[in-house]
């Protein structure tokens, strides 16, 4: 089994093209945007020999149903991602700083509609 260590997100290796048709094509991560102004969201992945065909495959697989208005494809092996075991320390400067939250601040009593 291939190691997925080279790819930050762990969505497979995306490595290997050796030029013959039986090799596995590179892996591309697919991000789709639905109409209504939502951000692009990870949908899945496709294999394709180049970006143009990756985009077409992504359209066929992930835009076949529903209201997709935009698709991004990104070679899986260029994504850098945090490691899950870092999760605690890496995201630490969040909740423990009370001054990042509106409740930290006092406003004059009786003021309505701040």
């Amino acid at each position: 089994m291939a190691s997925s260590a080279s790819v930050g997100v762990g969505y497979g290796t995306g490595e290997n093209p050796d030029g013959n048709a039986e090799s596995q094509w590179p892996l591309w991560e697919v991000f789709t945007q639905e109409d209504g102004g939502a951000p692009h969201e990870h949908a899945g992945s496709v294999h394709a020999p180049d970006a143009e065909m990756a985009l077409q495959n992504a359209r066929d697989v992930y835009g076949r149903r529903g209201k997709v208005v935009s698709v991004w494809v990104v070679p899986s092996n260029v994504i850098t991602a945090s490691q899950s075991e870092w999760a605690g320390p890496f995201f630490d400067p969040g909740a423990d700083k009370a001054y990042r939250h509106p409740q930290f601040y006092k406003i004059p009593r009786g003021l309505k509609g701040f």
Partner: peptide
């Protein structure tokens, strides 16, 4: 039938995240 092909591809792509190749 086209949907079934798509569904197969969704799950293959999910399976590949476990470190096995599509091929």
């Amino acid at each position: 039938v086209q949907d079934e092909a798509g569904h197969g591809l969704y799950i293959y792509c999910g399976t590949e995240t476990l470190g096995i190749d599509r091929a």
